[in-house]
Design a protein around this nucleic acid. Structure first.
Lengths: 66, 66
DNA sequence: ACATTATGTAAAATATATTTGACATAATGT
DNA sequence: ACATTATGTCAAATATATTTTACATAATGT
């Protein structure tokens, strides 16, 4: 299950995976893996991603909301 | 930083740390550590906790909301 | 056509989340 | 006073998140 909401939020901020990774302080592969799915990041990393993208946990990581 | 919101949600469901742990399929120590704070659980575990307690990620793990 | 940036992916190493087993104490009920 | 449940905490072991290095390909611009 890809995380398309996260990818959309990143792209709408005009950030590459690499730029987002550096802004947060993790590797590009980690960002790539989270967007790709089948990954289980830590909550602190999710929170850092949310802050960088101006979103909340529910908006990016809670289950499909319509 | 203790997670008092999670503890409150658990207590209001009349669940012990041990009962919640078993319901989710993790160890009691993990639940204890998360409530105690200074812990960095994975997002999947957070989601499992939220579901067990009928809460969302923002309600239990997003920063202090007033 | 060439160079550059962005993305997808893999294997080995490292950091850290989680478990297991154990012990101590507080709280509650009988 | 005793038994039982709930919680707090620790150390060693195990599982897994994350990094590092590396290579391949798609997309874009010149």
């Amino acid at each position: 299950m890809k995380n398309l909401r996260m990818k959309a939020a990143r792209v709408s901020k005009d950030l590459s995976q690499d730029q987002l990774a550096k802004a947060i302080g993790v590797s590009r592969q980690t960002i790539n893996a989270i967007e790709k799915g089948d990954y289980n990041p830590t909550i602190n990393l999710c929170i850092a991603i949310c802050k960088a993208l101006d979103k909340t946990l529910d908006e990016l990581f809670w289950e499909e909301q319509e």
